[in-house]
Amino acid sequence: MWQPAFHRTRRRTPYDEAMRIAVLDDYQNVARTLADWGSLPAETVFFSGFLGHGDDAVCQALQDFDVVVAMRERTPFTAERLQALPKLKLLVTTGMRNAAIDLDAARDQGITVCGTSGSLAATAEHTWALILAAARRLDVELLSASRPRAIDQPWQQTLGTGLAGHTLGVYGLGKVGAQVAGIGRAFGMEVIAHSQNLSAARAAEAGVELVAKEELFARSDVLSIHLKLSERTTAVVGAQELGAMRSGSILVNTSRSAIIDEDALVAALGSGAPSLAALDVFDVEPLPANHHLLQTPGVIATPHLGYVTEEQFSIFYTDAVRDIAAWVAGTPLNVLS
């Protein structure tokens, strides 16, 4: 009977003890400079290194913290992990959605979960960075220009692909997908789109052509994925879809890795259709240095940079401080659980 009473105390009693805040996965060591952490009545500790995938290391590091600020989905908080953190009272995630937090378990354990606002432009911009990098093979040419080479070794290594007049496919025409589509039109591309609930009227409003899923994969010279991960969309891009893509086409994923069947993608790249996969998201992050995707010809990889901009992080951390201050005052903001 002690456990329910403990839950009520954590959720409903104003916090009046010395408080400790952990800010996780601050890879670039910028969190302390992007928000006024000193305004909070607490000791704030910034973790720049990834704590690891195992529960033991994460829980040991966070045992003495009352508040944790998580950067997106870098460190998951499962039911088991939350249960092993009895002092945790507030969990703030950057963004208003985080599939790596078990919200039901947090609610059951009396942990308040809050989110922050953010900017959708960062992901759309990085999507286009990947499209352009793939089309012009910057993964190869940047190294060619910067590394010493023999006098008889060509300075230029590849022949790029133009985008104007080619077809951009957008799988998922939500807010980010619509931004990507608009930029594609500005490049002079024909833009087509598909998603399960996309209507012809919504497509026309975005200036794109609504097509069937099969046609999306068959017609696209560049196909960019912008779906939310769910049971319905897990592995929704598999061998059949990839097999319909054109030789020389480019697949881009800045959404979630589980949307694509990884084994099917490796096999498809081996067949030359698509010829390139520009990926910013992976099943395991940080991506191990010996991961088989990094050994697969045709893969252009970035380390989940879609949301990593100074402007975005300023919003994340400023809102996180505001969330914590509001929670301390007994009036929590942006509550997810």
Rank of each mutant, 00 (worst) to 15 (best):
A186V: 02
V176W: 11
A329K: 15
D25Q: 07
L40D: 01
D16R: 09
D16M: 08
S249A: 15
M245Y: 03
F47A: 00
L85N: 02
L24H: 04
T33R: 07
V328H: 13
V45W: 00
S144R: 08
H7V: 14
H226N: 15
H7M: 12
L34E: 15
P14M: 03
H291R: 13
R32S: 13
V328Q: 13
S119D: 14
S255E: 04
H292N: 12
A42E: 12
G298A: 04
L159R: 15
D280W: 01
Y15S: 06
L90G: 04
L88T: 01
G160H: 10
A106W: 01
K228L: 10
Y27W: 10
D55N: 14
Y317F: 13
N98E: 14
K213Y: 05
R107N: 15
S230F: 03
T254Y: 02
T158D: 03
S39W: 03
D56C: 04
P288R: 12
P76T: 02
T127L: 00
T78Y: 08
L279W: 06
L159W: 10
A193I: 01
H126N: 03
V58C: 05
I151E: 11
D56I: 02
T94A: 07
R137A: 12
T9C: 14
A277T: 04
V69A: 06
V191T: 13
A268D: 01
H166D: 05
T302E: 00
V328A: 07
P4I: 13
L287W: 07
V321C: 10
P14A: 02
T94N: 05
R147K: 14
V58E: 03
W155F: 11
L227S: 11
A164I: 01
E310Y: 04
N253E: 06
V45S: 07
V67D: 00
F77G: 09
A325L: 02
E241Q: 12
G52V: 05
G172S: 13
P14F: 01
P76V: 02
V328W: 08
F187G: 03
A325N: 08
Y307G: 10
A289I: 11
A129W: 00
A31T: 04
A22T: 06
E209T: 14
F282L: 05
T9I: 09
T13M: 15
A264G: 13
A84V: 01
G207R: 14
Q295G: 07
E209H: 08
F77K: 04
A100I: 04
G177M: 07
R256S: 08
N98G: 04
I183A: 14
P274F: 05
A84D: 01
A5C: 11
T233S: 14
R137W: 02
D36R: 14
Q109P: 06
T161I: 05
G182D: 09
E80A: 15
G330R: 08
L132K: 05
A79F: 00
